[in-house]
């Protein structure tokens, strides 16, 4: 491994100063970064360890009804916070469907947001990858790409964002709080991750030195607690990234869907908010026909980027499933196999 500076700043201001240098990278638990460094994919010259920064590991209920989650809160701690799981059940289920227990114990909220794609060509230093080396080309495009993007991809990059956590978050209008050289700012999570376009190497809207300090769920996110699910199809029952996943959160009043929130995972370079589908559902009675119509709307712009046409069909079916399950009501407790189709009734 290359030699690098390791600094452990005492406060956020020092951290930002230390990370503003070229080649610097923040380090939280390193569940992704250390693998990337060992594989030679990332070669930071300085690691700025933020794990000891004070005050960033709290879950706070704010006066306006929103919830503020410090960037250093561990995935497992958040998912197992009883009130959190009750209030944002799809988020807790998504968290628990990800990685392994060991990784969830280590991984942080901010780190999860910042994890890199699992595209094998990104990890394979011998392959051309526009993310690693702008202008190099994309070897995934003609390569082994059955798991790659079907939405929002470009000729420059067909990678997907691997997070489960982000999928219900983006559906619930989560907000990211950022500290940087020019002070504090906020971004909707939906605007944090970028689609590749002409510049796949710019994966997020963060500038050099920017530190995600917290994640906020707005007050209205609570209104979906009674009808919220996360469903994830994967190639083994646990410890696998999503082939496709979906979060569905509904506000049902008087037998009608007042408001729907839908997110898709494993389909694009960012956690995908399915707004067209939400509009189809708004005001409708919850039934199979409208779910299908919504699912078609969600994928109407989808196109295969390789051997992955099945993901378009699968994404629609998983949206229908997530909607069916959400409409049936959030279960009293998170299922033993979180996110798994086998955690619940198989619908029809």
């Amino acid at each position: 491994m290359m030699n690098f500076d390791y600094v452990r700043p005492a406060n956020v201001a020092d951290a930002i100063a230390a990370a503003s240098e070229k080649g610097a990278s923040y380090l939280a638990s390193g569940t992704n970064l250390l693998d990337l460094m060992k594989g030679g994919v990332s070669r930071p010259s300085r690691l700025v360890d933020v794990t000891r920064l004070p005050g960033l590991d709290r879950i706070e209920r704010l006066a306006d009804g929103s919830l503020r989650i410090g960037t250093l809160v561990r995935n497992a701690d958040l998912a197992h916070d009883a009130e959190f799981a009750r209030t944002y059940p799809a988020v807790a289920e998504a968290l628990l469907s990800g990685a392994s227990a060991q990784l969830r114990n280590a991984a942080t909220v901010g780190g999860n947001l910042m994890q890199r794609t699992r595209c094998a060509y990104f990890y394979d230093a011998g392959s051309a990858c526009n993310r690693r080396w702008p202008g190099a080309g994309c070897d995934a495009l003609q390569g082994e790409n059955r798991l790659h993007a079907v939405l929002g991809w470009s000729e420059g990059c067909i990678a997907t964002h691997p997070s489960d956590f982000c999928v219900p978050l983006v559906a619930l209008d989560a907000i990211v709080e950022i500290e940087g050289k020019s002070g504090r700012r906020e971004l909707p999570l939906e605007a944090l991750h970028r689609l590749p376009g002409e510049t796949p190497e710019r994966e997020t809207a963060l500038e050099r030195g920017d530190l995600i300090v917290a994640l906020r769920l707005p007050a209205e996110a609570k209104d979906f607690a009674g009808h919220a699910r996360y469903v994830k199809v994967r190639e083994r029952t646990s410890y696998a990234f999503a082939v496709v996943s979906a979060a569905a959160a509904l506000r049902i009043e008087h037998g009608k869907i007042r408001e729907a929130r839908l997110g898709l995972g494993g389909v694009a370079a960012k956690p995908w908010r399915a707004r067209e589908a939400e509009q189809v559902l708004a005001g409708a009675a919850p039934d199979a026909a409208v779910y299908s119509e919504a699912a078609r709307a969600a994928l109407s712009d989808a196109k295969p980027s390789g051997d992955n046409a099945f993901k378009i069909e699968l994404a629609q079916r998983i949206l229908v499933r997530a909607l069916t399950l959400a409409a049936a009501g959030t279960p009293d407790r998170i299922p033993a196999l979180p996110g798994s189709p086998f955690s619940s009734v198989a619908g029809a």
Partner: peptide, 28 residues
């Protein structure tokens, strides 16, 4: 589950790790 995925052009194995070379986990 089990399969080594090889890039058909380069001959490199794309899942040479235990995260993506799947063997059953306990839950399977």
């Amino acid at each position: 589950h089990e399969e080594a995925v090889m890039d058909r052009r380069s001959g490199r194995i794309l899942n040479a790790n235990l995260a993506e070379y799947h063997v059953p986990v306990n839950a399977d």
